[in-house]
Design a protein around this nucleic acid. Structure first.
Lengths: 213, 213
DNA sequence: TAGATTGTTAATCGATTAACAATC
DNA sequence: TAGATTGTTAATCGATTAACAATC
């Protein structure tokens, strides 16, 4: 373990990476060759020192006076995030939120390739949402296994969140992007990322009520 | 300022509050009268000490051996979050994500009342999504002002995120729930809460690639 | 009473921020 | 060269965790 000193990236840094990526991609589109900490800090409203600390984790060296080379930085950030490799995924729960996620074009740029959707509702089975076919739930295991899929997106109602996760894991899914408001109980080697809209609303509500007084 | 010692609630604590609320509401439904730190820690996968620290911010006193009184705790958490008061809101961008948000019934329980939706697309104007009418954008200012609405939800594409925020603020909106992947530039007294799906995907991607090796 | 659980005070950990020398 | 910007080392800040006395 001694040589494993290349400290692991802090979670907040990981969360900010997509923002750096987006800004840098905008610079590329505008034909700019260099981007500096100052640029990022102005556009993203962050302290320059924080940007420098974050970008250090890409392993890239900047040039004093110029900053970072746009094309190299894009590559480096994508490498850090693993977004240069395609990850196949399935989605379970083709309701309103599921449909919205199936429709995001941005995910494809981040290497996320949702190959199919599943839903318990027979009325949805067989339909196509944003180009993805909706399958019956009992087709899940076979498809996941056959295609070696490792990531699953859960957009089902709270009541069936856990059983959906169980089913995914049994089929071979290793990482779960959970949009249902449940804390999933999973084995240690399964990664769960929960998106919690209520948390965001809570923060907004508290800040708004603090501010109003 | 000296007497303002009642320390402000840490952001991570605020984010966890809705989880405590949900679990407690489940207990109420099951007819249980008491809920303890141990209960929370098992269901939510948190350390007991963290739960105790968090619940302290409700100002409620627990009873040794029993824990907290379910009905009182629900009330207390809702008070902390300001969810006992109704907040009227509008939503701009009635696309896939906007529709999904209009459809969530959970928000109403959190005091969030989306009264109307707006969209630039004439094809959507006049339609009804989950019971909310979609108006043309030029109706926004008048409606917000007339109804004294303070919260706005932004579910428009990245390119028009900033101008949507500008328009909301000019009309009188004080708090913005921003689902578009832009860092909004707003005056100091405006609260912005950004939901960033890319950040979540980034965390999941990194963890998954670390794990796979 | 015995013991589970609370609440408080102190210790630890990790992220942010500051300071400053190095460099193109 | 002068000065903007990088990268590194140290200081600060805030949240989590630990320890333990208080209590029903």
């Amino acid at each position: 373990m001694k040589e494993d000193i290349q400290k692991t990236i802090p979670l907040p840094t990981i969360r900010r990476m997509p923002n750096y990526l987006r800004v840098t991609a905008d610079f590329l589109e505008e034909g700019k060759e260099w981007i500096s900490t100052t640029d990022f800090s102005e556009i993203l409203g962050l302290k320059p020192i924080q940007v420098r600390k974050d970008l250090a984790f890409t392993g890239l060296a900047g040039k004093p006076r110029l900053g970072f080379e746009v094309s190299l930085l894009i590559k480096a950030i994508n490498d850090v995030l693993g977004w240069n490799n395609r990850t196949d995924a399935i989605l379970v729960g083709a309701g309103a939120l599921g449909s919205a996620i199936l429709g995001f074009k941005g995910f494809a740029e981040h290497g996320l390739n949702i190959v199919a959707a599943f839903d318990a509702n027979p009325a949805l089975v067989g339909s196509t949402i944003h180009g993805k076919t909706v399958f019956s739930l009992d087709k899940l295991d076979n498809l996941v296994e056959r295609m070696g899929i490792t990531m699953g997106v859960i957009t089902v109602p709270e009541a069936v969140g856990q059983e959906t996760a169980d089913r995914m894991i049994k089929a071979g899914i290793r990482g779960i992007w959970n949009f249902s408001p449940v804390t999933l109980r999973v084995p240690d080697d399964i990664i769960v990322q929960r998106e919690d809209l209520s948390s965001g609303l809570a923060v907004l509500s508290v800040k708004l009520s603090e501010n109003r007084i």
